[in-house]
Design a protein around this nucleic acid. Structure first.
Lengths: 195, 195
DNA sequence: GTATCTATATATAAGTG
DNA sequence: TCACTTATATATAGATA
């Protein structure tokens, strides 16, 4: 991209490396921004220079938010320093308690992600399902406060053989297209809320 | 960078946006890699497509490592935990990082519980909604593995005036009762997914 | 969705102040 | 270190398969 070709290997000349870093960094940040705008993508970019200085870019929603989202997707459990507690310390007490808390929350988290469901009992699975259900309802409630309009919906669902209530999710696009049918269910009264 | 100039604004044409995303994404990843090699920098790049698919790049050291470093770096600034650090500082370092993590997870958790939604931007709310959606789908998938039966459903939903996809929840009892109607939607093909 | 294939727009390596 | 310039290398928009 310049007068000379560049081998893909560390630039040994310190000055050149610094200059190149500065130029390419700004180019990289620019492109990260562009793709986020042009393609409506969420981008988080973190760069530590050789000397340890931090540069970052994150699209609209904050870096925090994106990293959270990332962790939701791919949280590889990493072993937090399994340190030997110090015999007397407040530190170790707090530390260990904190560590336990993290482990619990992370396990929880994975379940919220729909991961490791195998390890759950039937009862626990029900609870989880209900919890997710409730959360989504709360979200919808919040949305409903802004707009009083109500809509009807229909959708395709999967796997309904388990003995407990089955939750089904669909998009409004699908839903509204089907809305006109809700008043024609034979032998069934109209209802605006599910069970 | 092509035959036409491009305005820095969201590409409305869906196809073009997708194609551009694909091309620019690979370009961005490539450049991220290049700067990391050429300039000996540590780079972490996270990209979520408009539809929520994750793409990532991280230089040599793992993504986790870089994110950790980032958290350490930015938290160090934000939280001047002026604790009486132990001489070596290891404990307080780990402790603070752990504390940061707990806070992150707890905030996350509250959101999963449908709490503190006010603090979320529209974009963030969408993400959360989509995440919950995904989790429930995974659960249903698991259930589906046990029983191959699939069911159709219809239901009444609330508040669908927001511009983003609205998720609707209903019980299987309601759903299955309405199932027979899904194949009779005029001018609409059957689909199991939105978009 | 993917993969080419150009013509052009951009990025940037070197050079200069 | 920056700010510009310039020649070139790359990236990529649009078209097509």
């Amino acid at each position: 991209m310049g007068r000379g070709r560049v081998q893909l290997k560390r630039i040994e000349n310190k000055i050149n490396r610094q200059v190149t870093f500065s130029k390419r960094r700004s180019g990289l940040l620019k492109k990260a921004h562009e793709i986020s705008i042009l393609c409506d993508a969420e981008v988080a970019l973190i760069v530590f220079s050789h000397k340890g200085k931090l540069f970052e870019y994150s699209s609209d929603s904050s870096m925090e938010t994106i990293l959270e989202r990332y962790e939701r997707y791919s949280y590889a459990e990493r072993q937090l320093v399994a340190s030997e507690s110090d015999p007397q310390g407040n530190w170790s007490m707090d530390y260990n308690r904190l560590k336990a808390k993290v482990e619990l929350l992370q396990r929880n988290h994975r379940h919220y992600m729909g991961e490791e469901l195998d390890s759950l009992s039937l009862k626990e699975l029900q609870n989880l399902e209900q919890q997710l259900d409730t959360a989504l309802k709360l979200i919808h409630q919040g949305e409903g406060e802004d707009s009083r309009a109500a809509a009807a919906a229909a959708a395709v669902a999967v796997g309904a053989a388990r003995p407990w209530p089955q939750l089904i999710i669909l998009s409004a696009a699908t839903a509204s297209a089907l809305s006109e049918y809700r008043w024609h269910i034979p032998g069934r009264s109209n209802r605006n809320e599910e069970e």
